[in-house]
Write a protein that binds this DNA or RNA. Structure first.
Lengths: 340, 340
DNA sequence: GCCAGTTGCGTTACCGATACCACAAATGCA
DNA sequence: TGCATTTGTGGTATCGGTAACGCAACTGGC
């Protein structure tokens, strides 16, 4: 049923090898033959079988991108950046969505290995992704970590400056007069969560504000519902926080929901800030003050690192790229904005 | 570098064939041998080469899902539903994001063909996707269209009830007293846009309101910026509309932005409704009244149709599944909500 | 006109896995 | 014990391409 190179060859009356040469733009084919072969390819709708060509050449010119949640605007942009850069370099991208599930992550990594991709970009679920990633090194497949580092893995890495970013966000809140600042975070097996908590602590320490464990709530995974519940718990404290720092754009959704459920108005009753743009939602009220990361650049740079490795232009050691984040002050923090 | 079946075989001291049997859970292997082979597989980190096995068997147990924009919450959920259903059936999903670009769509369809996927789910860019899809039929690869039909293509299809959904939304606005209702839509080469415009017209007609062409603005593609500009144009009309119907969740973002730019409050100054949930954003103000579609179900049902074809359980004719949409009344339409 | 170099194309072997067949050893049943 | 069957394993060909090589026919410089 599927059209093969032999179908094309016999239609034109040449050998499969000649068709192969036309496909791969080899110069050793006469113009006349080339034209006839191209005609047959178009007419039959022939598409070369990459399983077969991937077998003989040792490359598929494709790489996998594994992210925990394509629906998260941050990762959507990362993927877009990666796709763009890959496309320009003549590579194709296979996208895998793990839904932050380790099981699934392992499955996809095996899949990518099975499909013989030339390399991978991985935003790992957590430090527990380590065994899956070992599969890659053992098979000699290069990969670049995005956004999150994985404990005990010394590979190329593109990440944001979570420590400093979080510190700035919290300092901003402190500058607005807040002293009782809570944080909604996720498992500290995720490097970004760990780093942001650290930044939070540093900011408090610098302002000589005591770190209160009860003001930090950790949800098992990042999810609006869990974050909402966590926020409600915080709001039930005898002494409620006056400001809230959400570990990312997903958690903040739950925070906003909880505030609404308690009829608290942001920022009048409680100030809110978070990491990452909320994309479309940041155009809606409450207009969130965020630490904005250049998500698309994460994707393009990671792709560049990977392409470098594939091309053998290898800086032998691992390369770590840290991209700065930008404080975008909107309304949710309660800052008085100059009239624009 | 890559571990092959021969590496495993020679390590254990059996033939590759025996290893293959272990991988594929053939019963004709002694427990003893099976254990030793499995040990070697784990130890070497061997992952079977699917390029090779895909060549001999005629299946890869993978299928492609092609959508215009994974960042669109509607499609994110479609993908999630498809992944879920595929996973359960032992299939793997390769996700392709066309960014509503025909060129890219063609590239991805060729890629999927090249990777010998067993089938595809396609949310096509527009009617102009027809030539790409013909490639699939010519190569005998089954596919199911999602969300959008493509003119002249009689294949399996899972879509929403756009005509009736749009009619209901507009009727709802009319019921609230609006007579001057504008619509922001996209190219009428997209079936859903076509159908929603039709529903809009039907609702007007039923209420004996004249259809005014100047109240319908068509943007070339669906994009918040374009929708924002389109809305501004509408608000510049001598007689401005009192209500606005956005063709989908992306367009409505631009509408909200435009309203804000003009310091109009929703719904006090202008009522707004749209198709599709805005996901996270619908938890933010303005709380949008929407026609909610069961996006995840789109994915699961489309997958089911595809799996049926792959399994040969074919209802020979095409099957069309139309999923109903639900009017979710929130605040943006200006309806008085009962106190909950 | 001769020989070296180029051009255009075909042949053969192989990538890594599996379908199919073969076959020795173990087992079952009369 | 004898013969049929089952069990466990290996050998060979093959999937659809391509690398490497081969080789006629043409080109061109002397």
């Amino acid at each position: 049923m599927r059209v093969t190179i032999r179908d094309v060859a016999s239609k034109v009356g040449v050998s499969p090898m000649t068709v192969s040469r036309v496909i791969n733009a080899s110069p050793r084919v006469s113009d006349e033959t080339r034209r006839r072969v191209q005609g047959a390819i178009a007419e039959l709708g022939y598409v070369p079988n990459r399983l077969a060509s991937g077998l003989t050449r040792r490359t598929t010119r494709a790489f996998g991108v594994i992210v925990p949640d394509v629906g998260n605007p941050f990762f959507t942009l990362v993927v877009r950046g990666a796709e763009e850069a890959a496309w320009r370099a003549g590579y194709h991208v296979i996208l895998c969505n793990t839904q932050a599930d380790l099981e699934r992550e392992r499955g996809y990594i095996e899949d990518m290995l099975a499909f013989q991709v030339d390399g991978l970009l991985v935003a790992a679920v957590s430090d527990q992704s380590q065994p899956h990633l070992k599969l890659l090194t053992r098979n000699g497949v290069p990969f670049v970590l995005i956004d999150r580092s994985v404990a005990g893995f010394k590979t190329d890495l593109v990440q944001g400056d979570s420590v400093s970013g979080a510190r700035q966000l919290v300092q901003h809140l402190i500058g607005l007069g807040h002293r009782r600042i809570a944080m909604i975070t996720e498992s500290d097996e995720v490097s970004t969560a760990r780093d942001r908590l650290q930044g939070y602590r540093e900011a408090l320490e610098a302002a000589e504000i005591a770190f209160l464990p009860e003001l930090v709530v950790e949800t098992s995974t990042v999810d609006p519902r869990l974050a909402c519940q966590a926020t409600l718990d915080l709001l039930d404290l005898a002494e409620t926080p006056t400001a809230l720092f959400a570990v990312n754009n997903i958690a903040v959704i739950g925070v906003a929901e909880a505030a609404r459920a308690r009829s608290l108005e942001i920022p009048r009753d409680i100030a809110v800030v978070c990491f990452d743009e909320v994309d479309y939602a940041s155009r809606f009220h409450p207009f969130l003050t965020v630490m904005s990361q250049p998500a698309e650049t994460f994707g393009t740079i990671a792709t560049q690192l990977l392409l470098d490795r594939l091309a053998g232009r290898v800086a032998e050691r691992r390369r770590v790229v840290v991209l700065p984040a930008d404080l975008v002050v909107r309304e949710s923090c309660g800052a008085q904005l100059p009239v624009s």
